[in-house]
Design a protein around this nucleic acid. Structure first.
Lengths: 216, 216
DNA sequence: TACTTCTGAAGACAGGTGTTGTCAAATACC
DNA sequence: GGTATTTGACAACACCTGTCTTCAGAAGTA
């Protein structure tokens, strides 16, 4: 109540304040999580192995995240917000000037570009499936959000699409699934396919769908 | 070497021969596996819980399958061969007489019909992802096979599609991904969406793609 | 009925993991 | 320099799971 309002003194150490050390450690765990979950996979991950990777002690892991599941979610959300933001950037820049096909190509190229890091691809495309009910909820929430993002972009291009709402939702989800599966395929094949090819193939799904829907 | 060639005598018990009892037990585990993996999920499954569900002892589990992973694969392959066979049936019957759209609708309706059992949907759509490298290999082999099946059907309808091979492969995989994701969405929503709606929405992906590819 | 085989329940054992506690060394403040 | 705090390594503990063994009783066979 007097001078120090914080219960924990929080003095500086190693040239960093308490707060700085905490965020640094969180970042270390985030990096280690991407490495471990993105290579060995979540299922075989252990707290000890993760701390070894992060070069930190178990205690800090429990202080920072508390469970492997929470760290997994943190890593996922970190990369997904990044991925999403980049796509939104690219597309909103392309929207006013470019043709429909060019916008689609730009968005997909951005998508596959971000997933060219196999660890990111693994964490964002496959590792979250079936971990726990909570994670499932969050994961499919993101997928739905991604679908809505795609639908929003589509409406920018074709404001007069006339389809039942539930069908539109399913179509959006399907497209996300298509992107997910093709990205997984790309990853599993060791990125042997050219990114250009991935973009053009998936773009055909978009374009085909749109020409169909608009001409309806 | 004399009369009994089998090392294990294999006499009858409970009115069944040794062989009969073995296949019966394998089936019991298969059923229990579908139930456990399809509801609680593979990750939280244990040998003990599975045996309780199957009403059999641990020993028979190790005799019949040996590991949860092998049982999971067995359950998966069992349902997938069934699913595949039904779709092939429906489509090959529809192919000569019906229009393209009708064939696509018939195939998709069959697909979603089979997945209306939530346990089957869960096992076939989500549970195999990221279990182990071996299972991954097998799983994505099936996905690839499914993609090739779809491509084969497409060629029956449009023999003169002219696209690079690698693009065609990615497109096939994408379509499987679309079906997978929409089915997962359907499952997660407790089948609130009409099957009809699922079929029509995903059919638009097919039809759109084909009109685009053919008109190229 | 006597004997062999099969079954089911339970327990024993080892290995791995999450989690907490201990303690010496490093670092900062006075 | 002396003292308090922070850190890192490691051991300890409890728990769960896979796996194998034991053993009494059921079911068939002679």
């Amino acid at each position: 109540m007097s001078k120090q309002d914080d219960k924990k003194s929080g003095r500086t150490y190693g040239g960093m304040s308490m707060e700085q050390r905490k965020v640094a450690r969180r970042q270390q765990f985030l990096d280690a999580g991407l490495e471990v979950f993105g290579t060995t996979g979540f299922r075989s991950a252990t707290v000890r192995g993760l701390c070894r990777q992060a070069k930190l002690t178990d205690r800090y892991f429990y202080e920072s995240y508390g469970s492997l599941e929470k760290l997994l979610v943190a890593v996922y959300e970190d990369r997904m917000t990044n991925l999403r933001a980049r796509i939104v950037d690219v597309v909103t820049i392309a929207l006013p000037n470019k043709s429909t096909e060019e916008v689609i190509h730009a968005g997909l190229d951005c998508f596959f570009n971000e997933l060219e890091d196999p660890r990111v691809a693994k964490v964002c495309m496959v590792e979250l499936e079936g971990v726990s009910p909570d994670v499932d909820e969050l994961y499919h929430g993101y997928i739905l959000g991604f679908a809505e993002l795609i639908l929003w972009m589509t409406r920018q291009l074709y404001p007069d699409v006339d389809l039942p709402d539930d069908e539109i939702e399913v179509i959006g989800i399907s497209i996300v699934g298509a992107m997910r599966q093709s990205a997984t395929h790309w990853l599993r094949g060791g990125y042997a396919i050219e990114r250009q090819t991935m973009v053009e193939a998936t773009a055909k799904l978009f374009v085909g769908l749109m020409t169909l829907v608009v001409k309806d």
